[in-house]
Simulated scan of single mutants.
Amino acid sequence: MSQDWVRRFIAANLPVLPVPGIPDICLHKADPQSGLRHLAEQDSQFGSPYWAHYWGGGLVLARYLLDRPESVAGRRVLDLGAGSGIVGIAAAKAGAAKVYAADVDPYAIAAIELNAALNDVTIDTVLADLTKSEPPEVDVICVGDLFYEAALAESVIAFLDRCLAREIMILIGDPWRTHLPTSRLRLLAEYTVPDFGEITAKTRPAGVFALG
């Protein structure tokens, strides 16, 4: 299935809505009428459409960057496991010199490109699992909600440790999920945000952390 077709489907079926608590950002957001099942019916590789929903870690990290633009202003920023691209969009709006958004899902990449255009920012998308790569040439890596599974959390932490060795700053947004490495984190801020997560949408506290 072509990326052009996917972009047209998202644009036609996922309404544009302001993000809860972050009215400066709008995203294509799934609703009960979006018909995402049609994507699954036409593509056997279609996975969980996490890119079409709000996740607490991404919301809290995006809000933090807009509240404290000095954390990314003038810096090269990577949004790792970017999903909808909300964190990268916030980084761009906060004045980042360059923003990259990486995800393993081509549907997420299509959503990021559409959402970036909606918000009048420039983001370079990367379709790849960067956790298997060497540290990128960036100053800050933002990680929103990548600690919901043990194996994923392990690979993410191993990658982030390699990045820390290159003196790259790591910012993490997460609603205190089970595999969050809390003993290694310094809490920078906490907000109450909507969260899709593992079950149904609800409001819960989420933190922004520095990894050290």
Rank of each mutant, 00 (worst) to 15 (best):
E134Q: 14
S133N: 14
L118H: 08
A117K: 15
V126R: 00
V121W: 00
I123T: 00
T122V: 14
D120R: 15
I141H: 04
N115W: 10
T131D: 08
P136C: 06
E134M: 10
E134H: 03
P135T: 09
E149N: 13
T131I: 10
P135A: 14
C142T: 11
I112S: 06
E149G: 08
A116L: 08
L118M: 04
L127R: 06
D124N: 07
C142V: 06
Y148R: 08
L127V: 11
I141E: 06
I141T: 11
A151Q: 15
V138N: 00
I141W: 07
E113N: 05
V138C: 08
I123M: 05
L118P: 06
N119R: 08
G144C: 07
T131F: 05
I141L: 07
G144F: 00
Y148H: 08
I141Q: 07
N115I: 09
L114S: 12
I123P: 04
A128M: 11
G144I: 07
F147C: 09
A151K: 15
V140N: 01
P136F: 03
L114A: 12
L130T: 08
F147N: 09
S133G: 07
A116K: 03
I141M: 12
E137F: 10
L114F: 03
I112P: 06
G144D: 09
V143S: 10
T125D: 00
A151F: 04
L130E: 11
D145H: 00
P135L: 12
V121L: 05
A150P: 05
L130N: 01
L118V: 13
V143P: 12
A151G: 10
V138R: 05
F147L: 13
K132G: 02
V138W: 00
L146Y: 00
T122F: 03
E149V: 13
A128C: 09
I112R: 03
T131E: 13
P136M: 15
A128N: 08
L127I: 11
D124L: 01
D129G: 01
D145Q: 03
L130M: 09
I123Y: 02
T122I: 14
A117L: 15
C142L: 12
K132P: 00
C142F: 02
A128I: 03
L152T: 14
L127K: 05
A151L: 11
D139H: 10
V121D: 08
V126T: 01
V121S: 07
L114G: 04
D145Y: 00
V140T: 01
D120H: 14
T125Y: 01
K132Y: 00
D124S: 04
T122P: 05
A151V: 15
Y148D: 15
I123A: 02
P136E: 13
V121N: 11
E134K: 12
D145I: 09
F147T: 14
A150W: 06
C142W: 01
N119L: 14
D124I: 03
E113R: 13
V121P: 04
G144R: 02
A117N: 09
I123L: 07
P135M: 12
P136K: 15
A117D: 09
D139P: 03
C142Y: 04
Y148G: 10
N115G: 14
P135W: 06
D139L: 08
V140W: 02
D124R: 02
I123N: 02
D124F: 00
C142I: 07
